[in-house]
Design a binder for these strands. Structure first.
Lengths: 180, 180
DNA sequence: AAGTTAAAATAACAAGTGTTACGATTACAT
DNA sequence: ATGTAATCGTAACACTTGTTATTTTAACTT
């Protein structure tokens, strides 16, 4: 019979994802992943047809990672979009490489912002309904305006051009909501 | 005496800049620039010590290009930051590769947002003073909040997640200013 | 113990990168 | 015309990339 596999799909995907997270997506190359996983490049191509497939898997893992990050983020904001926005901005600050991959890359097969935000839980819809219930006349437009604001803050944090503190972020977000 | 030069610094820099603009900064390689300029890679290394120097020159040219773009952009907005913001968002839409390079890259020697926006003309200061003259209590804070909004819209346009029309942009920007 | 078979390692290929060594070319002074 | 010297093209080096061919290794059946 055949030899038992010593490097699993999980080993490879785990390693590749950690590298994407810590060193950036561009560093997820066949040889570098193999080196970090402690094997040759061969097991990668047994499990994945080619590097594109591995990259796609890493991307999808990053989507799940973000959704978990949001779930675990403390829900202190009292206004709609406030917690979602704060989680998003904190994610940009703390997970720069993943943020770039998810929300700024030109990767083929990239999901839309809406798809990534929504996941299985439908966060955006929840917030929009909440805004509507709180008397917001145009919750869709509100979401869009809020999100421009949120995405702007996230990107500025990324480049270091302006990095809001959590308190500032919260205050600005809630103020922004009032103004809508 | 020596042979006369047939490929100038301008030839190389022009070619490299056009490539950065049309094909993206990552495609500005020695061989590709040479091919497009119709010469070997040798003239590049006569004029620039190495590729880093050429890339730096391309970057600085992009900064000037943006500043000219803003100067030439029609000043229809009646509120502070409105025209600057519209020009910035239009730039993101029309010059995606240059926008990435200028405002989202991790390039070494990258200027801060403020430096790029200000240039020699001091656009930001002008707008802040104008806001102050129009009775805005906290023009610095106003600028910052407006800019989060503007940058957010620009980045969303870049990724195609949400592309505002000029009219929408203008309306939102002026509405945002009122709310500040 | 020998044979089978899949997994993993080694090594190579082809294409790309920055960079450099080396001639050939060309323009001018002599 | 000849010499000089800088410019440019050719070719190479050293390195990286994805991918594949080949060999070695290991596990189980017989």
């Amino acid at each position: 019979m055949a030899r038992k596999e010593s490097i699993t799909v999980q080993d490879i995907l785990d390693t590749a994802f950690i590298m994407a997270r810590e060193e950036g997506f561009a560093n997820v190359t066949a040889r570098k992943v193999a080196a970090k996983a402690g094997c040759s490049t061969q097991p990668i191509f047994r499990v994945y047809r080619n590097m594109d497939e591995l990259w796609q898997a890493v991307y999808e893992r990053a989507v799940l990672f973000f959704q978990d990050y949001y779930e675990a983020y403390p829900k202190t904001g009292r206004k709609p979009f406030s917690s979602l926005g704060m989680a998003y901005i904190a994610f940009a600050r703390e997970e720069k490489h993943l943020f770039r991959l998810l929300f700024l890359s030109e990767m083929a097969g990239r999901k839309s912002l809406y798809e990534v935000l929504n996941g299985e839980k439908g966060n955006v819809l929840t917030e929009i309904n909440q805004a509507s219930a709180m008397g917001c006349g145009d919750p869709q437009g509100m979401f869009m305006r809020m999100w421009l604001f949120i995405h702007g803050a996230a990107c500025m944090s990324l480049t270091g051009d302006y990095d809001l503190s959590d308190a500032e972020t919260k205050q600005l977000l809630e103020q922004e909501y009032v103004n809508g």
